[in-house]
Simulated scan of single mutants.
Amino acid sequence: MDEPIKPILFPLINANEPEMTLASIEVQQGQLVQAGQVLAVVETTKTTAEIIAESAGYVFLNHLQAGVIVRAGEHFGYLSPEPNLDLQSLRVNQEISKIGAMEKPSMDVRLTEPARRLAEQLQIDLNLLPKGEWITEQRLRRWLEEEGLGIEMTISPSVDPAAVLIFGGGGHGKSLIELIRASGQHAIAGIIDDIKPLGSLILGVPVIGRSQDLPRFYQNGYRLMINAVGGIGDISQRVSVFERGRSAGFSFPTVIHPTAFVEGSAALGEGAQLFPHAYLGSDARLGFGVIINTGAIVSHDCEVGDYVNLSPGAILAGEVKVGEATLIGMGVTVNLRVKIGAHCRIGNGATIKQDVPDRTIVRAGTIWPP
């Protein structure tokens, strides 16, 4: 192989998006490759592309770790006719090459179209963004995480006093988004979630902050928060969200789906959530933060303690009492005047005929007492 050493450059896949992710590296340092062999895969926000060896040779790489952000024109590595190559002696040029009609970014803020849409949605002050580089949607999300500025910039100058923040972007959060939209009681300002990327959308609602940002949201005028952590696996997680919201000053509105039915004599505690076709009977009492899920029935004179989660299709007969932080599974039937203690877990489809002590676990599909 008497060909000269050839640089391997990251390609310009999209003229509006010179930044990309090095998704995978398909070869090893110093490996002999053939013409047309795939060396690596890169991704933009819109597409993926393969980096192909133009000729046979030994490959020597500058980038040895997948997942990093790279730019079009940067050197990925070199193809050498010899198995030994001193990379330092090549004085690798890491500046962006002139590729096609691509312009070198000016000192102004320049955004790709997906990044611009995200910035507009989050009401970001563009003057705060990095200068002299193209800002992709992925780069913008990373910048929000690194700088912690997404919170302040997502606050609208005029806050709707009835707008709510939803804490939690999982399945229960999706159900609550649908419930709130159906009820028309509140506008949704955004989602607070400690895991999902800032700016990501859940049923069209953006993730705008983390739990540690709650005090700043309160300072900027938001007063209402809805707890979308169901706590099926661990009720303490749901309780913890309420505690964090309370410590920041938030109140928790009661939300009721239009198809749920609440008798006039029933009483609902703060933060209760009634989902489609739930029923709350005469003189029934719900504590703080109770969930009455889809199709569940709470009959007359029942007393349901704080943080109880009543799953879809569960039925409480009249005068049943349920202690705080108890989880009642789908399709559970509880007989007349039975008392279920605090911090219990009643498995799906169980039938409860007699009182259940505190912190008892009743297995799914069984009859209590055993």
Rank of each mutant, 00 (worst) to 15 (best):
G295A: 13
L201S: 12
L144N: 11
V304A: 01
G190V: 14
L176S: 07
T333S: 13
E137N: 08
P276I: 01
V70S: 06
Q354L: 07
I52T: 15
K196P: 02
L85G: 01
E43V: 09
F167Q: 00
I195K: 03
P357R: 11
H300N: 13
E120A: 12
I124T: 07
S97H: 09
E3C: 05
I208R: 05
V38A: 14
C302S: 07
E270I: 02
N227C: 12
F261K: 02
Q121W: 02
I297E: 10
P161E: 13
P312N: 06
L22C: 10
I155T: 11
G295I: 11
N62G: 06
P215T: 06
T294N: 09
I226Y: 02
M107N: 12
D234Y: 11
P114I: 10
L274A: 12
T136N: 05
E3K: 14
E133N: 10
S55C: 13
I188C: 14
A23I: 12
G57C: 05
I361H: 07
S236Y: 08
E137T: 06
F76A: 08
T45L: 05
P370Y: 03
I232V: 15
A189E: 15
S55I: 04
A53V: 05
I5R: 01
G341A: 07
N348H: 09
G199E: 09
G171I: 10
L118R: 06
D160I: 01
V42S: 06
T259S: 06
V92E: 02
T136S: 13
K174R: 15
I96D: 07
V304Q: 01
V304I: 04
H186I: 00
L327F: 05
L198R: 11
E270K: 01
T366H: 14
E146Y: 09
A187D: 02
N220P: 08
A53G: 14
E145Q: 13
E178M: 13
F167K: 00
Q94Y: 10
E103S: 05
H343K: 08
G249K: 06
V109S: 02
G349A: 12
S183G: 15
Q138V: 10
E26K: 15
F60M: 09
L144Q: 13
A56M: 08
V255Q: 00
K321V: 11
A162V: 00
E82V: 13
N62S: 14
R223S: 02
T326K: 04
E133W: 04
D125Q: 09
V241Q: 01
S299R: 02
L198H: 08
A35R: 12
N220T: 02
V38Y: 04
I328Q: 03
G204M: 07
L111W: 02
L122K: 02
F250E: 00
G173I: 04
L310Q: 02
N62P: 00
G168F: 00
R223Q: 01
I69D: 05
S247G: 00
Q123G: 13
C302P: 00
T360L: 12
E82Q: 08
F275N: 04
Q34P: 07
L144W: 06
L179P: 05
F288V: 11
C302I: 01
Q121M: 13
G231K: 10
G245K: 03
R238C: 12
